[in-house]
Design a protein around this nucleic acid. Structure first.
Length: 234
DNA sequence: GCGACAG
DNA sequence: ATCTTGTCGC
C-alpha cells in the first residue's frame, strides 16, 4: 500500500478512487480525535529525497484531554511531488498511528482527499491503509477552487473540482484565514466539518494536529541535541 | 513553452 | 515541507 515508485502509487490511487467504504458517523459522546504529522530537518527546502531524516508524531485527544501520544524518528520514503505526497510521508504517518496506545475514532491529516488529480489524496489513502476514518486539513487546496466563506467561525463554502464538491473552505476562527477541509476515508462533508469545528476551539488549527506537530518538533530538537552532544564529546 | 503545484 | 520579519491584540 506504500509503494516506492511513482507509477505504482498512481495505480494504487486509481484503484482507491473507486472504493466505496461505508460512511462513518461520530458517536453521541465526544469522539477521540487523532492526528498524525511528519516534520523534516530544519533548513531543508524543496522536494527532498528518499532517506531524508523525518520525525513523525501522532496524538489522540478527547475534548482537551490527551489520551495517547507517539513519536518516531524515521526517514522519508521518497521525494515530494504534487499529487504524490504519499510517496514521501505515507509510511511515517502509518507507523506513528500504529504506535498509539489508544485507537482514535477519526484521524486528521495534513493532506487532501478527493481534491487530487486522481481523486485519491493521502488523507484518503492513509485511512484505507490504517483502517480508520480520516479528515484532511490543509492550508490550501491542491486543485479545487472556491470563494472564501464569511468571516465568522463555522462559516464554510464549497471547494469544487471538475464540477464536484471535494471539500470546503472552513472558518474555524473569526479573523483568521479559513482551512481547506477534505472529507477523507469514510467521512462525509458534514462530518468532516463537524469534526474540525469540534477539534479547533481556541486556535485556528485543530488541537490534535497542533499537539502532534509539537511532539514531532520536540523529537527533531532532541535528535539535534544528541548530535551536538556527540560532537562536543569528541 | 509557461505557470501551478497537498507537504 | 522550511525560513523570516513585523504587526496586532489579549
Amino acid at each position: 500500500m506504500w509503494p516506492a515508485s511513482r507509477n505504482e502509487l498512481i495505480e494504487i490511487q486509481r484503484a482507491l478512487a473507486g472504493a466505496t467504504p461505508d460512511p462513518w458517523w461520530p458517536p453521541r459522546d465526544p469522539p477521540a480525535i487523532g492526528a498524525a504529522v511528519v516534520v523534516f530537518a530544519r533548513g531543508q527546502t524543496g522536494p527532498g529525497a528518499r532517506g531524508d531524516p523525518a520525525w513523525s508524531a501522532a496524538a489522540v485527544l478527547r475534548r482537551r484531554q490527551v489520551l495517547a501520544e507517539a513519536m518516531l524518528a524515521g526517514a522519508a520514503a521518497g521525494p515530494y511531488a504534487p499529487g504524490l505526497l504519499a510517496l514521501r510521508e505515507g509510511p511515517c504517518l502509518e507507523s506513528c498511528l500504529r504506535a498509539l496506545a489508544v485507537a482514535p475514532d477519526v484521524v486528521l491529516v495534513d493532506a487532501t482527499a478527493r481534491d487530487h488529480p486522481r481523486r485519491a489524496g493521502l488523507a484518503l489513502q492513509l485511512g484505507a491503509v490504517a483502517d480508520v476514518p480520516t479528515v484532511g486539513v490543509t492550508h490550501r487546496p491542491l486543485l479545487a477552487r472556491g470563494e472564501w466563506p464569511d468571516d465568522e467561525r463555522g462559516a464554510w463554502s464549497p471547494l469544487v473540482l471538475a464540477g464536484e464538491r471535494v471539500g470546503v473552505w472552513l472558518r474555524t476562527r473569526r479573523g483568521a484565514r479559513p482551512l481547506a477541509v477534505h472529507p477523507g476515508w469514510r467521512t462525509t462533508l458534514e462530518v468532516a466539518i463537524d469534526i474540525v469545528l469540534m477539534a479547533a476551539r481556541a486556535h485556528r488549527t485543530p488541537e490534535p494536529l497542533r499537539h502532534a506537530r509539537r511532539l514531532a518538533r520536540v523529537a527533531r530538537a532532541d535528535a539535534a541535541r544528541t548530535v551536538a552532544r556527540r560532537a562536543c564529546d569528541e
